[in-house]
């Protein structure tokens, strides 16, 4: 099956600075694809060229086999776009916003209630958009992007500025959309979000894709050590140093932390000693991948 999105050598510059500098990737049908990077990395500009909001300086975009630029009215009914949680008509309630978008897309009114339920906003149907909380507004704007039951959904930083609980609630909504067979493309500057949601991520910085692949593969490719920590009371530092495979041992207030590249013997030795109280195993994350790629700390 042909890829849903094919992006080839995309370039866009503003005032002689390349915001997007030779980006190439493709997204398969039904895939959950993430573009990850700090602010100013070029994620949103890339997304906007795929959506057809901006014209690339060079390179090409194929979306569902068509070119999104110039404004392609054959494409618009098949895609869903969430731009920002404030893209609402002023003074209208959540239900009226959806009602209007359902009209704009020529869909049936039954969609309004379906979508309110899908994003969990039934209780807020009569609330004006301006009065919704950040998370509720994000969910409403996502619902607005789904009125036409699109094949591809674009989400630009859907969880920006949300508290952790609201973000996790939203993740469930996003997984649910992908589970319905939709191709989802999302930009985010949260590493954990990309790791938790995406089938594949493209890590961007300074307009270029640094690395692209499934999060787990990217992390494994680092060959980074694993940090195992247990309660200090069950294992002191000296006995930890004697464990097979322990490369390095540290202590903080209450824990003994073992750094190792071969976690299996360490863990089985710990199990033999019945020293698993408070066990935590922390592998590398996408943050470590970013640090490794750019040589600098990741700052969202």
């Amino acid at each position: 099956m042909a890829d849903t999105i094919v992006v080839t050598d995309l370039v866009k510059s503003y005032e002689s600075k390349n915001a997007v500098d030779g980006v190439t990737f493709s997204v398969a049908d039904g895939e959950f694809f993430g573009i990850l990077g700090p602010n100013g990395a070029g994620k949103t500009t890339t997304l906007e060229m795929i959506e057809g909001l901006r014209e690339p300086d060079s390179g090409s975009v194929s979306l569902l086999g068509m070119s999104p630029w110039p404004r392609n009215s054959k494409l618009l009914p098949r895609i869903g776009v969430q731009l920002q949680a404030s893209a609402f008509f002023e003074q209208l309630t959540a239900r009226e916003q959806l009602h209007t978008f359902v009209d704009l897309y020529g869909q049936s009114m039954a969609r309004v209630d379906e979508l309110l339920e899908m994003v969990g906003l039934q209780d807020k149907a009569g609330t004006r958009a301006e009065k919704l909380s950040g998370g509720q507004a994000q969910r409403l704007s996502i619902a607005c992007s789904l009125v036409n039951d699109p094949e591809v959904v674009f989400l630009d930083e859907p969880t920006a500025a949300l508290d952790p609980q609201a973000r996790r609630n939203l993740w469930d909504v996003l997984r649910d959309i992908n589970d319905r067979g939709k191709t989802v493309v999302l930009t985010t500057h949260y590493m954990d979000e990309a790791e938790s949601l995406c089938d594949r991520v493209a890590i961007m910085d300074n307009g270029k894709i640094l690395q692209l692949g499934p999060p787990a593969v990217l992390v494994r490719g680092l060959d980074a050590p694993v940090r195992i920590s247990v309660e200090q009371a069950v294992l002191d530092a000296d006995s930890a140093r004697g464990l097979p495979g322990a490369d390095q041992v540290e202590q903080d207030g209450s824990s003994t932390i073992i750094t190792t590249r071969t976690p299996s013997p360490v863990l089985s030795a710990l199990a033999e000693r019945d020293a698993l109280d408070g066990l935590q195993v922390r592998g590398a994350t996408l943050e470590d991948v970013f640090l490794d790629l750019t040589g600098r700390e990741y700052r969202a």
Partner: peptide
């Protein structure tokens, strides 16, 4: 306000 809230761009991506 529609431009500021990106509603204009949102409408540009709707089939209208």
């Amino acid at each position: 306000t529609w431009r500021d809230k990106k509603l204009l761009r949102r409408l540009r991506l709707a089939p209208i």
